[in-house]
Each structure stands twice: as C-alpha cells, then as structure tokens.
Amino acid sequence: MFTKPIHTKLLLGFLFIAALFLPLYVPDSYMFQIVITSLLFAIATSSMNLILGYTGQASLAHGAFFGVGAYVVAIMTKAGWSFWIALPVSGLVATGIGFFIGLFAFRTRGHFFAIVTLCFGVILFQVAENWIEVTGGQNGIFGLDSATPIPFPFFGPIEFSSQPAQYYLVLAVLLLTLFVLHRVVYSIFGLTFMAIRNNEELADALGINTFATKMVSFAIANFIAAIAGGIYATILGAVSPSAISIMITFNFLIFLILGGMATLPGAVIGAFMIPIIMEFLQFMENYRMLFFGALLVVVIIWFPMGFFGGLKTINQKIIAWRQSNTSEDSNA
C-alpha cells in the first residue's frame, strides 16, 4: 500500500551515510554546535508537523512544550536524577500538560484553537518567568551536567560531554522520531489525522472520534517536542525563559512552512537548513528576521507547500498527468 520507489530508498541511504560521517567535515566547534541544535530543532519541528501539517491543528503552544521538556530535565538533573530518567519524564509531563490544555483547546476550531493554545503557551512562559523558586525566574537554571554516561561492557561508558557524542545522540533521536512519524503517517491510523485536516465533519460522519484522534496527535507531538527540549537543556547546560518563549514556536513555524508542511523531509530540511542559512547571514544582524518574516508571507501565499512540498507537487502533477492519460486510453 505504502511502498517507496527504489530511487527514494537509495537517496535516503546516501543521506544516512552522509549524516554518519558529517562530524568529520564540520569546520569548527562553533559550527558543530549549530549543526547539533539544528538537528534538535528538526526533531521539534517534525513533531509540530504532525499536529499542524498532518492533523491541521495550528498549535501555537508547541514551543512551550519544548520549553517544558527543557525545564523538567534541568530541574530533575539539578536535583540529582539521572538524565535518562529525566528525559522520558519530561516527555510525560508535557503530554500530561498537553492533555489538560487539549481538554479546553479541542473544543474550539481553526483560529480559535490557535489563539487558545497561544494563550496557554504564554501562561507557561509566565510561569517559567515568575515561579522563581522552581524555575530560577529570569536567570533560569544553569550549570547542568551533560547527559549521564551510559555504562557499556568491554568498551567502557559512553560519555556525552564531547560534541560528536552529542551529535550522535541527537541524530539517533531524530531518526527514532522520523521512524515513529513515518509509521504513523503511512498507515490507516495516520490517514485519520489527515482526514480531520481535510474535512472534520466528514471524518466525524465516517465514524472517527475526532476529539480523541486530535488528542492523540497532540500527545505524540508534545511528547517529542519535550524530548527535544530536554536534550537541548543538557547540551546547552542551561535553560532560561527564552527556551519557552513564543519566539521558539514562531521559529519552528518558519522552519516548517519554508521546509514544507505535511511532508516528513520538509520539516527536517527547514529546521536543518534555516539556522545554518541564518548563520551565513550573520552580517545582516536584525535584518535577518525582517527577511524571514517577509519570506514567510511570500511562501505561504505563493508556495504554501514550502520547499519540499513544491518538489512533491511537481511529482504528483506528473503522476496525475500519467493517470489521466492512461484512463483516456482505457476509455477508448
């Protein structure tokens, strides 16, 4: 039902090998840091893609769930817990908060849903800023240890203090995320998400519990976003309210829209390329956001499917053209 053509498989294999050897070609540690955070953003953007791109629900609290993950990991590791326990807990906490928010937010649709989730996002930001005893207020929490080493027989423990180790950790989580999303999206279960995006009333009339389905999509998305945030906190060694601010959501949104909504590679391409492009545009300083703001408008008007969606549309047009040709033949 959902098989991929051979050339796609070859390309994916090539990209995987390239990703494995990437650390050999990174010029300096500064650039390496950017590559690592870009991959983290790719994880979070991919999960935003599930709720926004595939399910059609514009959750503007997504950055807040990223931040929740970062804070939970920071608070727990500071209190002496192992990173490997704190990380899944951060995902569960975000899923729990998301469930609570969803109870309210999924009663609304469209713009209203976007506004309600945005409000919840800002509330979470304000909590991070004002609940000083727990979150450290404006200063945040700093001096975090890097991820707890994993003991490994014969080879000694795997440590996560070096950049290559962090890179492979993030790459592994990204691949796992893409694996999960791929399984979901290319299944009948995932088709119900797209059904809701396409026509919620019809989905309801065809026996799909739209509320529960949206909630599941939201839960998966929030869990993954928090995991990305949790890793972000250990790699930076600190967390501050900026990790939970609305700008994080807007950044993910820019990555997703420019890369290509509702396509798995689009989110990754956007999240990976744009921070690197931004780095090359360093000389433009504040003009960069001016540029990306305008670009967002241009893309959503003229290329609503983004960079990868554009490629896909061309491909689909070719398929549709072939289909209409063959059907004419069969009619004749």
Partner: peptide, 17 residues
C-alpha cells in the same frame, strides 16, 4: 463530500477504520 487531498483508496480505508 470526499477527502479531496487524499487518494481514492485512502478515502475508503479511512471510512473502514
């Protein structure tokens, strides 16, 4: 009413879900 962003077979499978 059909899911016009999806394929014919997808429309049917969604309804069977």
């Amino acid at each position: 009413s059909l899911f016009d962003q999806l394929r014919v077979i997808d429309n049917l499978m969604i309804a069977y879900k």
